[in-house]
Design a protein around this nucleic acid. Structure first.
Length: 569
RNA sequence: GCGCCCGUAGCUCAGUGGAUAGAGCGUCAGGUUGCGGACCUGAAGGCCGUGGGUUCGAGUCCCGCCGGGCGCGCCA
């Protein structure tokens, strides 16, 4: 076993079935029909059928021109079970019409995995990707013209969760925030601050939130003096200062949410460091640029975009568009050696996917390495009516305000348990009311309950056996004939599968569902099986070990979601 | 008009072409002389928007329609 990764029992079973098929296949005539039927090993809907089910025989029936049941029986006959091989993870295989294989795990495999958890608690659940990649994930990237509002929450959590899952699946992840400190929005922000300071009316394109008034009081004298000295419009100087104030506030809010960013990249540095000009040169060299109506246009239609896109507003290489900066950024990111560039965008940006991918191709990159994840819109409603959010008018609920009423853990769970593509109606009052009955607390409660048991065990001198105690696997195997223990063990060993699936699907709701099921299974176990029983020291020791492994599994599942696992609550 | 996303239980949402479509919340009926009752057990509740097609098999894939959201700037 590699120290940093856990072989999921599912992959062990998959290998056993594939090996069996390879042996069974020897007795069958060659097929000429192509088939890319993968061996699917999945958890059956009905747990009484076994731990895993495979449809391999149904998939292979056609190319091999054999009845599914015949193939299933042949595979089953060749699967090594614990009856024939004590190292096999499989206890039994049954064939069920129309051709399913129902597979049952061996108790010793469950016991060995449980001990593995206790030996490697910090890495339990992490897997090693088949092809580990260096990945850059850019998310949130809201312009620093005002504090984050609740509309930004989904992008923040979606991106953060994706990063956590990809890291757990063995990838190296960089988290990046891109912000505009370059365009007219900055000037408008500065003009608004200046106007308030001078008692004038805020300009038409200005900003009206309370934070603008706060900043108007706090402008450092040197900012104004600097502008005066250089003769620059004070709107710019104040705008840059204000924008940085806002950006720092955004960073603090995100850290509070548990969303950490490794790199904060500003648009102006992209221009100043020459990346935009370099990108334009490369598009030109590729022959994908032409001039029209005094502007420079990128021929993105050559790569599947709907229409060509202007990148420079004039032919003298001046006034690049926002899209030009995006292209420069793409070049800059690839120059840092990432194999995969991911963007988390609101679905209102879906129109930009084609043009950015087109740019990637023209630049010579594989556009499969540029990936956009679109999050569906969140409609914020109150009493059934949509609550409009506008940074410019200052009419919005900030993220900090929301999190003041709904805990970070509850909010993270809310977004983690929904697919990115699923549209959400977020009723603020309902969310506040339901915060206290959020499933996150249900899972945390199971964790705290186990912590309490372990405290009690220590107090009464019934400490669990050491993780490397050679008797442990035997003790554990001894209790797995009990229904509550067997069910709990079968739940905890699933974590690596759940992580694999989350990484593959780039969704986290499988993790929340799993954590809920595990907590439920534990609560049932708690009801049916007394952990601390002075009259049964061996049984107590084994149950303590099982329960400790459950606690680690709960903590790691919650950790993947950025949710705390309290020892008491 | 064209393009993308969505439509599953009262509500909020899951459901890698597989077996009897699930969870949480809500509703109703029960449960504790043991280690945390923020818990447990059970019940009711579904033409999976709709009509075709593909196949051994469709909530899932393809086409049409209906309904909702979003996009179609030399803005960012």
């Amino acid at each position: 076993m590699t120290p940093n990764a856990d072989p999921s029992l599912r992959s062990q079973v998959r290998k056993a079935i594939e090996d069996a098929w390879a042996r069974a296949q020897a007795g069958l005539p060659e097929t000429t029909e192509p088939h890319d039927a993968p061996v699917t090993i999945e958890r059956p809907a009905d747990p009484t059928r076994g731990d895993f089910a495979s449809n391999i025989a149904l998939r292979l029936a056609k190319p091999y021109r054999r009845a599914p049941l015949e193939i299933a029986r042949a595979i089953a006959a060749h699967v090594a079970t614990t009856a024939t091989d004590p190292n096999s993870p499989i206890a039994s295989v049954e064939v069920a019409p129309p051709g399913f294989l129902n597979i049952r795990l061996a108790d010793h495999a469950l016991a060995a995995t449980t001990q593995h958890i206790l030996l490697n608690p910090a890495t339990w659940g992490r897997t090693v990707a088949a092809h580990p990649e260096r990945v850059n994930v850019e998310f949130v990237s809201a312009n620093p013209t005002g504090p984050l509002h609740i509309g930004n929450a989904r992008g923040a959590f979606t991106g953060d969760l994706l990063c956590r899952v990809m890291a757990a699946a063995g990838h190296t992840v960089t988290r990046e925030y891109y912000f505009n400190d370059f365009g007219s929005q900055v000037k408008n922000l500065g003009a608004s601050v200046v106007a308030i300071r001078e008692g004038c009316e805020i300009p038409e394109d200005g900003y009206h939130g309370d934070y603008v008034y706060d900043m108007a009081r706090d402008i450092p004298p040197e900012v104004l003096a600097g502008a005066e000295k250089s003769g620059e419009d004070p709107s710019w100087a104040v705008g840059r200062w204000a924008s940085e104030q806002v950006r720092a506030g955004i960073e603090a809010s995100l850290e509070h949410l548990g969303c950490h960013f490794d790199i904060w990249r500003s648009e102006s540095t992209l221009h100043n460091d020459g990346w935009v000009a370099k990108a334009v040169d490369r598009l030109r060299a590729a022959g994908d640029v032409y001039e029209e109506d005094g502007a420079v246009v990128f021929r993105s239609t050559r790569y599947g975009d709907d229409k060509d896109r202007v990148i420079l507003r004039s032919t003298d290489d001046a006034a690049p568009t926002y899209f030009a900066a995006d292209i420069g950024y793409l070049v800059e990111k690839f120059s840092r050696g990432y194999e995969r560039i991911v963007f988390i965008w609101g679905e209102d940006h879906h129109g930009y996917v084609a043009r950015v991918k087109a740019a990637a191709q023209s630049l010579g990159f594989d556009d499969d390495h540029v990936q956009m994840i679109l999050t569906a819109w969140v409609r914020f409603v109150r009493d059934g009516k949509e609550v409009p959010m506008s940074k410019r008018t200052g009419e919005f609920i900030t993220l900090d305000e929301l999190l003041g009423e709904i805990g970070v853990d509850a909010a993270r769970w809310f977004f983690a348990s929904r697919a990115a593509s699923s549209g959400i109606d977020f009723d603020i009052e309902l969310a506040k009311k339901q915060s206290s009955e959020n499933p996150a607390y249900y899972v945390q409660y199971a964790h705290a309950r186990i912590a309490s048991i372990l405290r009690k065990a220590t107090e009464s001198g019934m400490a669990p056996p050491a993780a490397d105690d050679p008797r442990l696997a035997e003790l554990l195997a001894g209790i797995l004939s009990g229904a509550p223990e067997a069910q709990l063990a079968r739940q905890i060993v699933r974590l690596p599968e759940v992580v694999e699936d989350a990484a593959a699907s780039e969704e986290t709701h499988g993790i929340t569902a799993y954590a809920t099921e595990l907590a439920t299974t534990f609560h049932a176990f708690y009801r049916d099986a007394r952990v601390l029983d002075p009259d049964e020291p061996d049984r107590s020791a084994a149950r303590l070990a099982l329960v400790a492994a459950t606690m680690t599994t709960l903590a790691n599942a919650l950790g993947l979601l950025g949710i705390s696992a309290p020892e008491s609550m």
